[in-house]
């Protein structure tokens, strides 16, 4: 009897999955149909980066003006109209990092705008002091472009099967003419009756 219990315990323990680290957004991530997963966010941000670079607007601006454009991209510029509580830097962080670090754009971190909130308050205060001292608007990093967007979802069900369709949409506005110069959408659809590990 004891041997049987011991064997049963070993079998049950072996069936458990102890906590372990995985590649973020990789093939071992959990896929759900009840909410937006990290893979969906990574897929969307990668698609948006590619679409923005493919459009060539930033590269054309740099060729014309002799400097990379200044981009205003605030985390609050993306409206999350879904049931998932999503921290927006999960989406915007990768886009900012790729565009800024590759030198394609310069990010405006001291521009207040209508919200009055700047990303870097110390740098903004320094820029204001510099502008007052020099009596010139130099240092005023007025953006050339701004990025805004929305995330929406549609949920449907057939019997036990649940389907979640999510759409990420982003728009690039050119501040010289206040017109949208680029816009794109990325749709992600997931279907199933329970969460699972895998793509």
């Amino acid at each position: 009897m004891r041997i049987l219990l011991a064997a049963l315990s070993i079998t049950l323990l072996a069936a458990c999955t102890p906590a372990h680290r995985i590649d973020t957004g990789g093939p071992e991530s959990i896929t759900t149909t009840s909410q937006i997963d990290i893979q969906d966010v990574q897929d969307a941000s990668a698609s948006m980066i590619e679409s923005l670079l493919r459009s060539g607007h930033f590269q054309q601006f740099a060729a014309t003006h002799g400097r990379p454009p200044i981009l205003l991209f605030k985390d609050g510029a993306i409206v999350n109209d879904t049931t998932t509580r999503l921290s927006m830097p999960l989406l915007t962080g990768d886009i900012k990092a790729e565009l800024v670090n590759s030198g394609v754009v310069q990010l405006a971190t001291t521009y207040a705008g209508v919200s009055g909130r700047v990303q870097d308050q110390d740098a903004a205060a320094h820029a204001r002091r510099q502008a007052l001292r020099s009596q010139s608007p130099e240092g005023d990093a007025t953006p050339d472009f701004s990025l805004t967007g929305t995330i929406v979802e549609h949920s449907s069900r057939a019997g036990n099967t649940h389907q979640l369709d999510v759409q990420f949409q982003m728009t690039l506005t050119n501040w010289s003419n206040s017109l949208a110069q680029w816009t794109d959408t990325k749709k992600v659809s997931k279907q199933g009756d329970k969460p699972a590990v895998g793509l």
């Binding site: 957004g25 893979q39 897929d43 590619e50």
Partner: peptide
């Protein structure tokens, strides 16, 4: 290295 280096289904 790139942020577009992601697994897609």
């Amino acid at each position: 290295a790139s942020k577009t280096d992601v697994w897609r289904a």
